[in-house]
Design a protein around this nucleic acid. Sequence first.
DNA 1: GCTATCTGCCGACAACTTGTCGGTAGATAA
DNA 2: TTATCTACCGACAAGTTGTCGGCAGATAGC
Lengths: 208, 208
Amino acid sequence: MRVVKPAEERKNEILDVAEQLFVEKGFDNASTNDIIKEIGIARGTLYYHFKSKEEILDAIVERMGREKIAQAATIVADWNVPLMERLTGSVLALNVDSGVGVEMLAQMHKPQNALLHQKMQESVIAGVVPLFAKLIEEGNTVGIFNTKYPTDAAEMIVIYSNTAFDELAGLSPEKREKKSKAFIYHTERLLGADEGSLAAAIMKIFSK
Amino acid sequence: MRVVKPAEERKNEILDVAEQLFVEKGFDNASTNDIIKEIGIARGTLYYHFKSKEEILDAIVERMGREKIAQAATIVADWNVPLMERLTGSVLALNVDSGVGVEMLAQMHKPQNALLHQKMQESVIAGVVPLFAKLIEEGNTVGIFNTKYPTDAAEMIVIYSNTAFDELAGLSPEKREKKSKAFIYHTERLLGADEGSLAAAIMKIFSK
DNA sequence: GCTATCTGCCGACAACTTGTCGGTAGATAA
DNA sequence: TTATCTACCGACAAGTTGTCGGCAGATAGC
């Protein structure tokens, strides 16, 4: 018996299942057969909605990226919150919180998911770096930051946080503590902020 | 007619061809058939020397990583050269020079090669970061650097340079110029070096 | 109400993939 | 001179992605 659904619905259904499988087993190890069996549709149906496996991956990345960027954007745009907290908050959102769960992020950093991870990184960088750059420029004029290259500083922070935050997962509490402090320390330096100023903002976020 | 070679030789032959194909077409798109046809051996021969395609990749990464690390190590250990130049020299070696050519590095950063790239990055980071960290500590005691977290600073520099240097390739000369300057600027800040001190060291290297 | 079309779906099939395995050639050892 | 051991061979199993002709059921046109 065949079940018919509107294209958008089926597409999302496929993306949901594929996303889970890709993250869980890795893009290469999860086959299109796994996807269609899980949903209970035929081969042809899958290829009716997406023209290749890679296109499914791209759609997933697009979707996840959009969510993350949107989330960062709301934080960045919240004028009620001090500048410094908006910056740290959105960096955190990008890496630990975010629509996708923590365990998912960990999965994404496994070698099998290198492609997914890289595409996500590109997507997020493209979307978020400009936002951060504006924030940093704002900080420049306000006087809490001081840097000649806001965009590049933003890029460096995003890239590093993205690759370093998952190392954190497998570390002992002390090492994690140290690495986090180091990250904050270096972010302050990159932005030309006073030592400890960012750390203070982060404390504020967590005490809320 | 069958040609017999000592295992080591055949292994290297396979690695050479595989490396070229993986970089050129991507790990997934280059098939083991491509490899054996190019060399002119049978399927069984390939799997006699390597137990999987992935093992071939790992061997390639291992070999490339070893070369890069060795190269960085020689530069770092050259006591005749000033500290600052040793640091910049080895960062450059890691990214633009090195045994593998420039065009190869560009290929390696294409999405198809995400896995190769990621594994290489891990390998290089593990090998090079400790070297850099020592160098930075040395700079701390000498007084040209000033940072609380030498290891993390080293890591940040290596990771960022590794992902940012290839963006450079596709940029206009002016943007490239600006991005390079930004990178140097940020490296100085991370290390707590005087502004312009690293830039000067780099000039020295290129004027040689 | 009766076709025609259009949308979503089906599953067999072609053309690949990776990895296995029994067997073979030729150098080396006994 | 025979046995063994190393490197090699190629057919094959099991699985992969993507294609394609055709079908079912809602919607549109008459």
